[in-house]
Design a protein around this nucleic acid. Structure first.
Lengths: 390, 390
DNA sequence: TTGTACGCGTTATCAT
DNA sequence: ATGATAACGCGTACAA
């Protein structure tokens, strides 16, 4: 049995954590802390200095943990003097709140997960900047993961995010993703999700999309306005809604202007440069080649321009080219690439705001809702046949 | 009066919060918790389904928490049958381990912080990809923050990362950063740090740098080899070591080849496009303008090419230009930009490996150590006077 | 105004 | 092999 070193009683002894590797005791009768020092382990060499905790401050000042907690949170019910003393001591001891402990007790994390398919182009990083701008202002942190355009990576990433107890998820899917069970887990936990650009129809969530249909219509009608008539489309993967929408815009723009829609002029790429190059050559080698190509994105359009250049086909005189996404390279390639610009950073900002809103009034339940953002056609030389030498 | 259900004593009874809406009591004598169960409220309707915990599984199976924990961790000391039952039940109840709780008890986070100055160019995102590749494989998550090239943001970001109890920090400083107290906090906590590209001399940490000196020497000697003689340098911010190193390489390359180093041909930019443009015009407007410019990075070099184009100065015939960092645009601008390529993704991989190594053998104590990575000169048209029409 | 004790979900150290 | 139970650091209802 253990006796209190002060009052010698034995019944009011509680264990009170460890001090330098030794069991520490607390006597409730005389409010006395002590350890059974002496012959125990020689304390395993003073190691990594443990960060200051609320307890440390309380002990140093002889007050209760709760008082310290209250003072640090500027709770009204705490004496001004004690508060001052506590805050000063906290500074002196270089106290840093432990977010992990806070999260546990609050059973939240103040972390928003951000899951994107890739970092190789500026698009997703820019969206991230936008989201971060809003979220850090609101006191949220972000865990950013990228799935490498791989379904398997997406699965493991979502599992990680789930274990990290993220409070919300901003996500754009892999181009491979066709099953959505891994997202349903968030649905079940009622963790708000915002999908952007690429999304799953069957998942109940907020979606932020570019108005891909309008962007495509504008691009194709611009080509038609420049006198191009045999316009091909290098389309994207069939499972992505954005591909479907841009294809729909392409088809409607042609039909609306009395031009035929020819299957031979529509090719679906996997968004890789290699495939784009192969398809570009295929288009240019056709018996009756297109006089213009509308590409699913700028990297593909750039491959088209390069392929044309290699074959000695003049752009825009013999071939008009329009891309999508306003890649930084598009302004610098020769000729400058006409493209559809998306409000990239705005997507991120909006997604973040949506998440915060969902977090705020969780009462409103899961709503799925679309936000469509407008695009802007940026006209450069690659599609201007009017002024070009013939 | 309330009697303990176990020892029937009455004096040692404390109230102990509520359990499912019922007053709960605690007997200090026999350390026993109990409620006066029975006819009370029928539990206030199951709300938001709380995620399954280890306790839930234990209760469902009538075993102890510790047994569940052991089973889930594949501890040897657990009966095969119980283990099987537990694992199955865990699946059935859709159990997800709570990383936050795990982190608290382990007083670690398995999170590596990554702090970079900006996302506007491909450089930092690419480094991040490299780091992530290694870290996720090792079971670490990342919190990525960007400081917007602002010292104030860097301060607040480091505070956030500190509170998040990150296990390690990979960082590249702001171009404004001149004081390093906020990094010393990590030093004090013995949180391993790896600086890359931009670092502080006074902080004890691993550093990964590109061999900027060699890269600059190669660039300038290439220009000299092409017959340029009056070579200017658009240098970077003075406080960044990379600026100093590239400047040193520039100076040494000139001296070594018997060319004078002229102060009027050295201008320090702040890395913004606007300043680059102004300085480019200044160079080109000089009474005796340079016949070549070595720029601190590609964005600046691109501004130089654009300025020359605007003035009708032919590149490379009248002006040679070499950049640094192999920006994706540099291959597409006209003429193609000669540049010094850095092994970007490799930086990230290496930084991650360093962090993991430091985490593994923390015994080795804080070492500061340099790793220098080699660059590669990519020669494009902007500096090839030999073949160019004069 | 201040202190006590509990719980958040785990792991780990004891007993048994 | 399994069960209690004390941590981890914090917020907070309740008691004093």
């Amino acid at each position: 049995m253990i006796k209190c070193l002060k009052c010698n009683r034995v019944e009011a002894i509680l264990k009170a954590g460890f001090l330098r590797g030794q069991q520490r005791y607390y006597c409730k009768d005389c409010s006395f802390h002590f350890t059974l020092g002496g012959t125990l382990k020689p304390s395993p060499t003073s190691r990594k200095s443990r960060p200051t905790t609320i307890k440390d401050i309380a002990r140093a000042l002889g007050v209760a943990n709760s008082t310290v907690s209250r003072a640090l949170h500027d709770h009204p019910d705490v004496n001004e003097d004690t508060k001052k003393a506590i805050i000063q001591m906290a500074q002196q001891m270089d106290y840093q709140p432990n977010q992990v402990a806070y999260d546990l007790v609050k059973s939240q994390s103040r972390i928003i997960g951000m899951l994107v398919p890739e970092f190789n182009h500026v698009f997703f990083p820019t969206v991230i900047i936008g989201a971060q701008e809003i979220l850090t202002k609101a006191g949220y942190r972000m865990i950013i993961m990228q799935s490498n355009e791989s379904y398997a990576d997406e699965i493991s990433n979502t599992a990680t995010l789930l274990a990290s107890r993220i409070d919300g998820l901003i996500v754009s899917m892999t181009k491979e993703t066709n099953h959505y069970e891994h997202f349903k887990a968030f649905e079940k936990r009622e963790i708000p999700m915002v999908f952007f650009n690429r999304y799953a129809e069957e998942i109940m969530a907020q979606r932020i999309v570019i108005d891909d249909y309008q962007g495509a219509v504008a691009a194709v009608e611009h080509l038609i306005g420049q006198g191009y008539r045999r316009i091909a489309h290098m389309a994207g993967p069939r499972n992505l809604t954005l591909s479907q929408e841009r294809l729909r815009g392409y088809i409607d723009a042609l039909s609306r202007n009395g031009l035929p829609v020819l299957n031979e002029l529509i090719l679906h790429t996997d968004l890789s440069d290699e495939t784009a190059k192969i398809y570009a050559q295929h288009f240019l080698d056709m018996a009756e080649p297109p006089d213009a190509i509308f590409a699913i994105n700028d990297p593909s359009a750039i491959q088209i321009i390069l392929a044309a250049r290699a074959k000695g086909i003049r752009v825009p005189a013999e071939l008009g080219v329009v891309g999508y996404s306003n890649d930084p390279r598009s302004a610098y390639i020769e000729p400058g690439l006409t493209t559809v610009a998306q409000p990239t950073k705005e997507i991120g900002r909006l997604a973040a705001k949506k998440i915060l809103a969902l977090l705020a009034n969780e009462a409103s339940g899961p709503t799925d809702q679309f936000v469509k953002l407008d695009t802007e056609l940026i006209v450069r030389a690659s599609s201007l046949r009017a002024q070009a030498p013939r």
